[in-house]
Design a protein around this nucleic acid. Structure first.
Lengths: 254, 254
DNA sequence: ATAATTTATTTGTCTGAGTAATAAACGACA
DNA sequence: TGTCGTTTATTACTCAGACAAATAAATTAT
């Protein structure tokens, strides 16, 4: 990592990055990909900013962003070093996106879907208990749009998102909402998960319909069950191009 | 919020805050407490830094930290405004700590423990399946220290943390580890959850022992069950001084 | 040998200037 | 009258250079 490539977009919110955001993203990806190891010392502010041909201000703001996400720690006289893995905010949307930016790690992907299964199936269960008729109406409409267009169209994908967003809102739990929507946002913007250049492997509408019905029936047990199945199907349908050469990298720290 | 009070520590990592960290914390608390509402425009950089009597540099770095946690968004010509609640990183350790810094919101606390219940009981289940003998040994030792000292002593609390940390490591899932340890870190450093000035309401050792036994037995079903009970007890034992005047604040956004 | 002191290095903070993005106002044109 | 391109004003963004503060390591005093 030497010269700075500024063009990069591809952050969860998909809005253009400023200079500090670009630098943070570059270093963040370098850390998540193992290019920098925990404990490694970043070169000093002056040297780094000169190498990247940016001002110290911009570089420092990038470091603050990384520190806010638990990836680095700065101390006078010592410098800025990559934090231990336990301190990384693995579920921060940016960190999540950066982790899957380069080489898709199948093990890591499985762990992520393991958590998704746990949380989102529980969310479906809660939604079944707490949903209002308004939630139900919105979900039905989203489902109809999802069927009319398909996931091949932008409108269809938007309907899919609306379905899941409404389901989350029905849980009435801001922590579950934040966690899940953050993971989904990162997943949706990562090229690894995009299936544009091949036929969709399965019609997702029937599976979503089953989730909808259990929530309509206020049946938390089956809502959890069918949502879990939906997650598993999503995992199966996720294309993984190549396995990582260093599986289970997150275990190293111990 | 006008003058800057710099003395504050009390962040998850309990290390002294620099100026930018202090500013970020102050504004972060103001946002989480509802002092600033989503959509509100922060005063410009020049005005803000003058009011706080700090340099624009320090103020800007604080804003970058807040933006990295999804609390604010900056745009030229518009300014920096508080983001919509859906964009907040509710599970970021700092955000979590800031949210409970001021007035304990019982509803919000229940939602947090709802998620803890879901994730940590599932974690216990996974730990029961994946724990090694080394994990088991470490947990047993922590349990013994926990019994010898009590939670009234620092050594006892450390043993408690070690127990839970090892359990998490046994899940072998970095996302679950990150999520849970982040929540626990925030919870542990928040005064609201500290029970120093009163007798401990219950001997926690037997409950922890039951968790340990199910994991030792590689019994995921009962591990989940007894861990869930442990979480519920922790919630019951959490002192809530005063209910919030504005319950369910996170629903406003919809 | 230990503790207090000095020193060197690195991040942290400040100031002031100029740039770039962008929303809103304006004006040309249909 | 309404739409589209242009200008303008505002705000965050980036830069440069200096000085301050924290801290680990080296040094000195006891």
């Amino acid at each position: 990592m030497n010269k700075l490539v500024r063009l990069g977009r591809s952050n969860p919110a998909s809005k253009v990055l400023r200079l500090h955001g670009t630098i943070a993203r570059d270093i963040g990806i370098a850390i998540m990909s193992g290019n920098y190891q925990p404990g490694d010392l970043l070169t000093g502010e002056i040297a780094s900013s000169e190498r990247l041909e940016v001002s110290r201000t911009a570089y420092r703001e990038a470091v603050r962003i990384l520190a806010a996400k638990g990836l680095v720690e700065s101390k006078p006289k010592v410098g800025t070093k990559v934090s231990a893995r336990e301190k990384w905010h693995m579920l921060d949307p940016d960190v999540l996106a950066w982790a899957f930016e380069n080489e898709p790690d199948l093990e890591l992907l499985n762990r992520l879907f393991e958590l998704r299964d746990i949380v989102e199936s529980a969310a479906a269960s809660l939604a079944a208990l707490r949903r209002t008729d308004t939630h139900l109406k919105t979900m039905r409409q989203a489902l109809e749009r999802m069927a009319r267009f398909t996931l091949a169209t932008e409108a269809g994908r938007q309907a899919d998102q609306d379905f899941h967003t409404t389901l989350l809102q029905a849980t009435d739990n801001p922590y579950i909402m934040s966690l899940t929507s953050g993971v989904n946002a990162a997943v949706n913007t990562t090229t690894m998960f995009k299936q544009r250049h091949r036929p969709l492997p399965r019609d997702p509408v029937p599976d979503h319909m089953r989730v909808f019905e259990t929530i309509a029936d206020k049946d938390p047990v089956n809502a959890q069950k069918v949502m879990s199945e939906l997650i598993q199907l999503a995992l199966q349908d996720t294309p993984v191009r190549n396995r990582s050469k260093k599986p289970r990298a997150w275990r190293k720290a111990n």
